[in-house]
Design a protein around this nucleic acid. Structure first.
Lengths: 188, 188
DNA sequence: GTCTATATGCCGATAGAC
DNA sequence: GTCTATCGGCATATAGAC
């Protein structure tokens, strides 16, 4: 049944994303993906030039989902500190719920060009503006990077099973974020 | 020339490590590794049961090298803060010099068992003792985890090309580490 | 005991029929 | 737009030479 088209870039990405999260990105094969879509493998090449391009699209989809999550943290907080704490928690929660696609998306070595530095500038800018309320505009990029680094590093090590010696990881995460924020304030 | 043995676990690991750093861990093949060792691929199975086990040994080697580097940061600092700053810088420098094997080693999802939680407990404990001088013993594990998270997250995002918007990354790194330490002190 | 030879099967990718 | 057919590369596993 060639017509109408059974496939679309979006449906392929969505199915590939689900398989990546279920089986691990490295275990996604074009034949397995095609089978899940009730299609033969070469058909996928009508929509993506190769497997790498397909997986890059999956990563872009993951980053888009991450920022959708971050923007659900609404804006009724008493302080900027509270807002940033909640945003960090939402970031971590997303990583817990989608560990494999999350790690794949942020571990991706940027291709030859620099497409979307600092995650995606247009997506991250509103968050940087919040940080600037604490640090002032000049220091805000540095502070934002420190915060993203702390969040991502904590989640990465946690997901890799490197934090196994006991102690509440929730508390350790929240306390570390709070201490970094406290460090900014004592400078400002 | 079957005798004497051309191979040893150590020589295989060392060569695999070099290929992993040069070509990327995912691009290491047993046939390529065997060729680099002037040997045929199946010979490697006498020393490692499979490729996964071999790459785990490579990761262990990488972690061992990382801690060797950290312990070259000697102990003539005026303050604990200075010591920790230098240690963080040494960690980052190691990651810059060995980006692919570093990322592979710390991204490794721990196998079914928990072999070496918190990197390697025996290796990391001396560093935790330093942290405890600032935070006290109860908070030292939490503080250590925050510091490792910040270091590893910064390096991960940096290596993935996610920090491309300009600004000195050296300064951003050092300032973030300093601010986290400052956060601890204001609690203690 | 150390290595070679060989086979099996999966994957990514291409060419061309309909 | 999807299919069949097919190629080359790689991991795994076994049998056997020396």
């Amino acid at each position: 049944m060639p017509y109408p088209a059974q496939l679309s870039p979006e449906s392929i990405i969505e199915m590939a994303w689900q398989l990546a999260e279920r089986d691990g990105v490295d275990n996604v094969s074009l034949s397995g993906l095609a089978k899940a879509l009730n299609v033969k493998a070469p058909s996928l090449y009508r929509y993506f030039p190769n497997k790498v391009a397909l997986l890059q699209a999956v990563n872009t989809h993951t980053v888009s989902m991450l920022f959708d999550t971050l923007y659900t943290v609404d804006d009724g907080h008493e302080s900027v500190e509270d807002y940033l704490q909640d945003m960090a928690a939402a970031h971590r929660s997303f990583a817990h719920q989608n560990p494999r696609t999350y790690m794949a998306a942020l571990s991706e070595t940027n291709p030859d060009q620099q497409p979307d530095p600092d995650y995606n500038v247009s997506l991250i800018l509103p968050i940087q503006e919040r940080v600037a309320l604490l640090t002032g505009p000049e220091a805000s990029l540095t502070a934002l990077r420190g915060m993203l680094a702390l969040i991502h590093g904590f989640v990465s090590l946690e997901l890799a099973g490197q934090f196994q010696r006991g102690g509440s990881l929730d508390e350790a995460f929240n306390a570390s974020i709070a201490q970094l924020i406290r460090g900014w304030k004592s400078v400002a």
